[in-house]
Amino acid sequence: MNFREYRIGSRMFGAAFAISMSITLLFPSFDLAASVVSEVGLDKQLTSGWDSGWQLSDPLLNGLNKPLKVLLRKDPKSGAPMEPVYAYVYPAGTTLPNGVNHTANLGHGVEELSVKEGRIKEARKEDGVVFLIKKSDKLLNFEDKPLAYMENATATKGWTPSEVLKQAADSDILHAGSGKTMFVREGCWWCHTLLPEQTQDWQVFGAPPMLGDFNGESPTAFGSDRKGPDLLHVGSRNASREWMMLHFFNPRLVQPHSIMPRFDYLWGEVDADGKKIDFKKWRSEYDEYREGKITTPPDVPMYAKDSEIRNLIDFVINLK
C-alpha cells in the first residue's frame, strides 16, 4: 500500500461504506425501536412465546418451551362462570416473552402500563405465569381507543398455570405457540405469506398488518413468495378443524387442484384412540380412489391430542 492513491482510496471506501451502513441500519433502527406494540402484536407475542426458530431450549424445533393460549370460561379460583377471556399460560420453566424482559420493546405507554398496572416485572420463569391482555382508558392508542397492555394475572389475581389449565376443556386450549414452531420448521412460509399487501389484497386476504403488530415476535416468518394464499387472517375465513385436518392429511381430498404437500407425517405413529396409523394402506386405498376403483376416499384418522399436527392446526385456526 505504498501509493497515496490507495491510502485515499481506502479511506474513501471506509467513509462510503460507513455512511451507507448508518443510513440503512442506524437510522431505521431508531424508528423501529420507537414503535408501540398493538393489541395484535401483544397477542402474537404472548401466543408464540420467546422464539419460534432455533433456540437452545428447542434445538430440533419440536415445539418445546412454548406457552398455551387458553379460552377461559370459568374463574380459575372459584370455578364460577365468567365472561370468556383468553389467558396465555406459561407453565413453569417456559421462557417468558420478549416484552417481559425487554420492556422497552413494548413501546411508550404500553411499557409503563404493563409494568405498573400489569406487574409484569414480577413474573418468574421458575414458577410459571399466566398473562392476560388488558385495556386501559388512561391512555389511548393512535385510533383513540383504549391502549392494550400485558397483565401478569399470577401477580394481580393469583391465577397459577395449573389452576387455569384445570378449569379449561382440552378443546379450549390452543397449542398455537408450538404450532408456530411447526409453521417455521415445516417451511409453510416458503409458500404462504403472513403479509396481505397494502395495495390490492384487502378483499380476499384481509387487512395488512400495522407497525406495532410485530414487536417481540421472532421470527416474523411473514414470507416473501406466494405459491398459495396468504394466511394472516385464514382463521377468520375458515375455522373448521375438520376441513383443516383433511386438508393437511392430503390437500387433494378437499381441493383437487392444490399443489400443497401432504403433511400426514405430522400425525405421528398413532391416532386419537392410540391405534397405529397404517399410512401404507391409506395411500394405496387413496390411489384406488383416485383411479376410480372405489367411490369414496379412505377416512382420515383423527389426530392424537399431543400430535404435531394438532399444534399446527391450532396455530392456523388462531390466525384471525
Binding site: N98, L211, S218
Partner: peptide, 16 residues
C-alpha cells in the same frame, strides 16, 4: 439471532 432482536427489526435485518 445473536441478540434476539425481534419484530420488524428482525424482518428488516433479514432482508438487509
Amino acid at each position: 439471532e445473536y441478540f434476539h432482536l425481534t419484530g420488524l427489526t428482525e424482518a428488516y435485518m433479514t432482508w438487509w
